[in-house]
Measured scan of single mutants.
Amino acid sequence: MATGGRRGAAAAPLLVAVAALLLGAAGHLYPGEVCPGMDIRNNLTRLHELENCSVIEGHLQILLMFKTRPEDFRDLSFPKLIMITDYLLLFRVYGLESLKDLFPNLTVIRGSRLFFNYALVIFEMVHLKELGLYNLMNITRGSVRIEKNNELCYLATIDWSRILDSVEDNYIVLNKDDNEECGDICPGTAKGKTNCPATVINGQFVERCWTHSHCQKVCPTICKSHGCTAEGLCCHSECLGNCSQPDDPTKCVACRNFYLDGRCVETCPPPYYHFQDWRCVNFSFCQDLHHKCKNSRRQGCHQYVIHNNKCIPECPSGYTMNSSNLLCTPCLGPCPKVCHLLEGEKTIDSVTSAQELRGCTVINGSLIINIRGGNNLAAELEANLGLIEEISGYLKIRRSYALVSLSFFRKLRLIRGETLEIGNYSFYALDNQNLRQLWDWSKHNLTITQGKLFFHYNPKLCLSEIHKMEEVSGTKGRQERNDIALKTNGDQASCENELLKFSYIRTSFDKI
């Protein structure tokens, strides 16, 4: 039985969820670079991206490699990797027998973001014989899940209580170790020597080791999670996991709180800001991140802002960003909400898709409305799209047979046209069989910064309504002859009103 693990408890099935942008060198404390989270699957090609990484700022997932063999891993080693800020997950990587050479110096898994409450997941690794993470000293947050690894031993010899604050939620089941077939031998045991430290858990006094050649490092209890030197002297209180010299914040392997210019500090002093819960960055760093993602459509890219001495992905609820200094300031009234469309555009074809934009005031991208039916549609669209004030790209209304009016965009005031449909149009209306009105132009103002209007096959939309939009939106004169079809717009509506004058002759039985 794995020490510190839980057996036999019912657990939810383990679901495996399925960018080499360097964020800056980590400095003297770390020998390499800070790398983003990685999802490495199918083959070993991307694994080489770990070569210079000291910190993975995010998670590391290595999974679904069915053609790899043990010899493929023999020359692979990433000794610079010290810390993973989120979680480490391995799933069905064939041929991998140990992690001792792959990650010989991995010391800390912070667990800032977890995989279903777990910071370390080893699942269905069919050839893994031992973990071998002999320098792993601290899992700051989260638990361990090690399950269905039929060859995995050296679990009962690990004292997880020396690595985690609590072992109650560890789930370590259905491994070879369960069948008591392992016969784990710690260093020196074969020669009758006791080389590794022994600890007591559940009444068992057991030597602690990761492999037959690597003991588990056990520091004096007084050192807590700070770690200790090879001689057993406690590291500085700002260290986490390990250090090369005692009581020196510049000799830590990793930091308990924050890293700044080669030393570990309790908090980031001005003019620095907390970033990702582990390091200090200056304003320029946060500003660069903001600008890199301002026009990016890459998933996970955030326009970072500053709030409460932190550089964070977005302002919290009730705050909006001051564009001059990136500071989050309290909103006066309802907060603006910028919604970034991942692929640059979004099609609204149902109430469900409209709900995804609920509360958005600025759309960074283009909207395509293609709704053919739905219950209580006008009210639903207004509830979900009615706060949109600005669209950076274009607005396209296409084959939306259920629409009679666009009044559900009740606050839309600006279409920038930074991206144009077919390279020309910022407003595009095609084949809307029941569209009769755009907006009530006596109450609604709309500016279209650039781009043209396109109207074709809107049989109940009168040309007068379209011409009014040209005047109000500032697009009059931009359109070419064929942009607004004269014969297919309003051709099934009563669009022309003329005053009919009647004269009559009164007659009676005795007068003409």
Rank of each mutant, 00 (worst) to 15 (best):
D169L: 07
G203Q: 09
E71G: 06
Y273I: 02
P313R: 05
E97R: 13
D165T: 08
V265E: 04
V108R: 04
L327R: 12
K224G: 12
R256I: 09
V108G: 01
G32W: 06
T189Q: 08
V108N: 15
M321H: 15
N170E: 05
S237W: 10
L106N: 02
C311R: 05
R41Q: 05
D169M: 09
K80W: 09
G192F: 15
F285H: 09
G227I: 08
K80Y: 04
N43C: 01
G203Y: 11
N138P: 01
R263I: 12
H28E: 07
H212C: 11
Y273R: 07
L164Y: 04
F66R: 01
Y94K: 07
M137D: 02
E168Y: 03
P270A: 13
I306E: 05
E238V: 03
K148S: 15
I201A: 10
R74F: 06
K217R: 10
L164G: 15
R297H: 13
D72H: 03
P271C: 07
G188M: 15
S161Y: 13
N175A: 12
I201S: 10
G32A: 07
W160K: 02
T45P: 14
F258E: 01
N135M: 14
L120G: 00
Q61V: 08
E130M: 14
K193T: 12
L289I: 15
L136K: 00
H302Y: 11
K193C: 12
D178K: 07
C186E: 03
W210Q: 11
I62R: 00
C228S: 03
R110E: 06
L120C: 05
V173G: 03
G142M: 01
G37C: 03
H290V: 11
I306T: 07
L63T: 09
N150A: 05
N52V: 14
R46I: 07
G188H: 12
P70T: 10
S284G: 11
F285I: 04
S296Y: 13
S213M: 12
S317I: 08
L99M: 11
I306H: 02
R162G: 05
M83P: 00
L102P: 01
H214E: 09
K310G: 15
S296L: 08
S296I: 06
D75W: 06
Q287E: 15
T320Y: 06
G203I: 04
I40F: 07
P270N: 12
K67P: 06
V218M: 11
D86A: 02
T194F: 13
K224E: 13
G111V: 00
I312S: 10
F103Q: 01
Q303V: 08
P249W: 07
N135C: 05
L120T: 01
R145T: 03
L128N: 01
H290Q: 14
C252K: 01
N149E: 00
C196W: 01
A119P: 01
P336F: 04
Y30S: 05
P336I: 15
R69W: 10
L131K: 00
L136T: 02
F78A: 07
H48Q: 14
A156S: 07
Y259L: 04
R162L: 09
D39R: 10
D72N: 15
A156Q: 12
C243E: 00
G95S: 05
L133I: 09
S323D: 15
D261W: 03
K294Y: 13
T107P: 00
I306K: 02
T68M: 14
G58V: 00
I84A: 00
N43P: 03
N170G: 05
C255I: 01
Q303I: 11
S237E: 14
L240F: 05
L64V: 10
C264V: 00
H48N: 15
E207K: 15
T250E: 11
N43Q: 13
